[in-house]
Write a protein that binds this DNA or RNA. Structure first.
Lengths: 251, 251
DNA sequence: AACATGTGTTGATGTGCGTCAAGGGCGCAC
DNA sequence: GTGCGCCCTTGACGCACATCAACACATGTT
């Protein structure tokens, strides 16, 4: 581990000195976030409704369960988790969100956020006020379609998680999560084999319906089988094929 | 296997004799399906894009995983299940759909249905071609918002199921499903305490991440505790409070 | 009526993961 | 340095649910 003074290093943005120059047109992530064929004047219009505020620090909330729904949010850097509290007070992690991904859709149905979202590390966020988005969508069919698609994707991903929880063993669940993170890294042109997990073992277990101990044991086992190299939160995938076999998924 | 000429049969449109008189304006279910304040000319416009074909027979598919996505569907009568096949060939039931409910949203993201939908009993369906719906949504902000809300509701419901699967015992899962069906019945002005389950024990187990045997045992136990009266698929809720306590949910 | 098939129930046994407990590593405060 | 808190790991044990097996019952076919 390199001896960096601030281990997160990256975006240590003071009240966004340079933010005025960030926009959807030049954002590195727009291939993920907005894979649209929009004319540049349309992008400008979209850009004008998006608000970029100062970064969230680790453990800060973006919104909480029960808050009035106003906006959906795109992650520009960092990572977040979404979770809801169960009726007996425990929490259920419902998703992890990485740069280029959009969260907050569960708030639309009741005008109230159905889950909370919290930064797992320092995170920069683009806020997209939903009322403006709706208006703009009416004028730009591509944009309307894009947001229908994003919500649909969230539905299919939730259904994949449902399947994972209902049908797969602890080994398969953990392997599937590692593969998912790897894939999402690759989409952002980062290494598919070396990465740092932004979330704790507790969060992983919570997301996958397992206890911390089980997650830890599975990771140790994968290390013993030379599928992963695990050093605390640093992960290296040594044997992608073995990992896929362990996940028991074809994709 | 019933001796149908072509079991693929699926939607074999042959405008049904009495259908001309069914429309969204006079449909008993529109309070559930379309709880909108639309002017009657708007309802007419919506009505014009909706297609009502002859009912699906039990076990017929409405669509299959991999089919091209064209439409979403509202259930007018009967019941359906949605399911996807896992990588090792088993199936995962992702939802049950009752009259007034809308299914098919998972197809939008890839223009391909991510799950299959099959009738659990004879079912009448309203087909809503998505391309027309999109166009109409651009013109009618209420309608656009309504469909965003419906998709958002699907997301929050999936997240509830995720929580159920990840955190709750067999007893709690089965109790929660019974309560959910009871609530949905009540919304349609049917009895909240007496109903017939349209799905098999296998489907219930599959949906809840349990085996048939466990589902059967839980139902027997509930009967022994005088919470339910179970006669094959006929259910009577004898003790709603006890059922809610067993489900361990506040709502 | 006889039979096949699908669907549901119940009991006996096994096991994967939860629970409980202990201890190690690391960062941070003082 | 010493102490404290948090996160992670590892081992021993138990339990809730899966698995295996047998049987009951309903429905439809011949």
């Amino acid at each position: 581990m390199p001896a960096l003074p601030g281990q997160h290093g990256d975006i240590h943005v003071e009240p966004c000195a340079h933010d005025y120059q960030v926009n959807c047109g030049n954002c590195r992530l727009n291939a993920i976030c907005l894979p649209l064929t929009l004319e540049s004047k349309d992008i400008d219009q979209l850009d004008r409704i998006i608000q970029r505020s100062k970064p969230l620090q680790k453990n800060q909330h973006l919104y909480r369960e029960g808050d009035e729904f106003q906006s959906v949010y795109a992650v520009r850097s960092g990572a977040l988790k979404a979770y809801r509290s169960t009726d007996d007070g425990r929490e259920q992690v419902t998703g992890f969100y990485f740069p280029g991904e959009i969260l907050g859709f569960d708030g639309i149905s009741n005008n109230t956020h159905a889950s909370s979202a919290k930064a797992l590390e320092t995170a920069a966020i683009c806020e997209i006020p939903f009322a403006s988005l709706e208006k703009l969508s009416s004028l730009m069919p591509n944009l309307q379609r894009h947001f229908f698609q994003l919500m649909s994707r969230e539905i299919t991903e939730d259904q994949q998680l449902i399947t994972l929880l209902s049908k797969n063993s602890a080994d398969e669940r953990v392997a599937a999560l590692m593969l998912s993170i790897s894939t999402r890294n690759a989409r952002r042109k980062l290494s598919a084999t070396n990465f740092r997990l932004p979330m704790s073992r507790v969060d992983i277990g919570n997301y996958l319906g397992l206890t911390v101990e089980t997650v830890s044991r599975v990771l140790s086992r994968m290390q013993k089988l030379a599928i992963l190299q695990v050093d605390n939160k640093e992960i290296e995938i040594l044997d992608p094929t073995g990992l896929r076999r362990m996940a028991n998924l074809s994709h």
